[in-house]
Simulated assay, not measured.
Amino acid sequence: MDDDRPDVLLTGLLFYDLVLTGLGKPPTPGEEVWTTGMGCGPGGIANLAVAASRFGLRTSLATVFGDDFYGAHCREVLAGQEGVDLTLSRVAHGRPTPVTVALALPHPRSGEGRTIHDRALVTHGQEPPYSQDALMGDPPAARTALVHLEAEPRAWIGKAAANGTRIYADVGWDPTQQWSRDLLDQLALCHAFLPNETEAMAYTRTDSAVAALGTLSELVPVAVVTRGGDGALAVDQTTGEYADVPAVDIDVLDPTGAGDVFCAAFVAASLGGWPLEERLRFAVLAAGLSVRHHGGALAAPGWYGVDRWWRSLTDPGLKRAYGFLADRLPADPGPPVRYAPVTPPAPHG
């Protein structure tokens, strides 16, 4: 309670997201497709920042905003509405904020007879004029940092780890599909690694999520493999715990940012010192609640969303599985969260 460091340190690319849902199929050339749902708001690294802040974590974000309407709107949402500290962030004068149009599309999973959801993305933008290392410099001491590992290691991550910051890392799709194991060398700096099962199996050269988890658990103290609609599994070598939990059955509107919400929730529960199974169930639940709303950042449920879900729960099996929430939820979960609007408010002035 006496620790005044940021709870979470973040850096990465920020986007303005326009998310379209309710598409029965993707559009084809020459065709106009009407959609039944739309939402807009900050995306990219903002997904992690908002998700963490809504769980009451002091969140410090280093990113680059364009000097346009989209950049001003994203700054107002992050700092003014969500309470994210933007001291380390900068404005790139003369450069637009990257904009992403996301199409949330259902498609059948081959051979399983059920529908899963994914998204197609179209982005306009430029690389920012400041790198992550330039933004961070000598990073401030923080309790944790949520990082996205890339082929080229970022110097600031090593500096942060040397400061005593616990590094929680994920990784993205490798467009080269080489899945170089050299990337895993960076896990020596990390406290936890949270890839999805496709990434985990590819980097470890294994053929199952369980086998991938076994390999990763030898490289990092806390290894987590997320499995989308099949839940998640994890090993914590610091406590000797293993957990494998199912997903919560929730209707999917838009899966954008669900992985980021999972990571932020897992960090929040870890900072609370929860047992591994509770950490994993909480993260799976938070990610599940996020897919019921448009967009990435503003779909994050926060304590308010989790509290509402718990209070409305009638399923006895879920009541037992999530009974720990009765002791974990704050007495005041805060005001209702604001979800992604169809259109942003008009600029001031």
Rank of each mutant, 00 (worst) to 15 (best):
M1A: 08
R5Q: 08
G12A: 04
L13D: 14
L14Q: 11
G22Q: 12
T28M: 11
E31H: 10
E32L: 13
E32H: 10
V33L: 13
W34R: 14
T36G: 04
G41N: 09
P42F: 04
G43Y: 11
S53T: 03
G56I: 07
V64E: 08
F65Q: 13
F69I: 08
G71T: 12
G71D: 07
C74K: 03
L78N: 06
G80Y: 09
V84M: 08
D85Y: 03
A92N: 10
V101S: 13
L103S: 07
G113V: 09
R114Y: 13
I116K: 02
I116Y: 01
R119D: 00
A120H: 11
H124Y: 15
G125E: 06
G125I: 07
Q126T: 14
E127L: 12
E127N: 12
S131N: 07
Q132K: 09
M136Y: 02
G137R: 08
G137P: 12
A141F: 01
A145S: 13
A145R: 05
H148R: 13
L149F: 10
A151W: 07
E152N: 11
E152Q: 14
W156K: 03
I167H: 01
A169R: 01
W173G: 00
W173C: 00
Q177N: 13
W179Y: 15
W179L: 09
D182H: 13
L187C: 07
A188D: 09
L189W: 01
L194Q: 06
E197M: 04
T198R: 12
A202R: 15
Y203Q: 07
T204W: 04
D207A: 14
L216G: 03
S217M: 11
E218W: 00
P221T: 02
A223F: 03
V225E: 06
R227Y: 07
R227Q: 15
G229D: 14
L233F: 02
V235S: 07
Q237C: 10
T238C: 04
E241L: 01
V248S: 01
V252L: 01
L253M: 10
G257V: 07
G259H: 12
D260L: 02
A264R: 08
A269C: 10
S270K: 00
P275F: 02
P275R: 08
L276R: 04
E278C: 03
R281E: 06
A283P: 11
V284R: 00
V284Y: 00
A286H: 08
V291D: 05
H294V: 00
G296W: 04
L298C: 09
A299I: 05
A300L: 12
P301D: 06
Y304N: 14
R308S: 03
T314H: 13
T314S: 12
L318D: 09
L325I: 04
A326S: 14
P336S: 10
Y339F: 11
Y339N: 05
P341H: 09
P341D: 06
T343P: 00
P344Y: 07
P344W: 08
H348L: 14
G349P: 12
G349L: 14
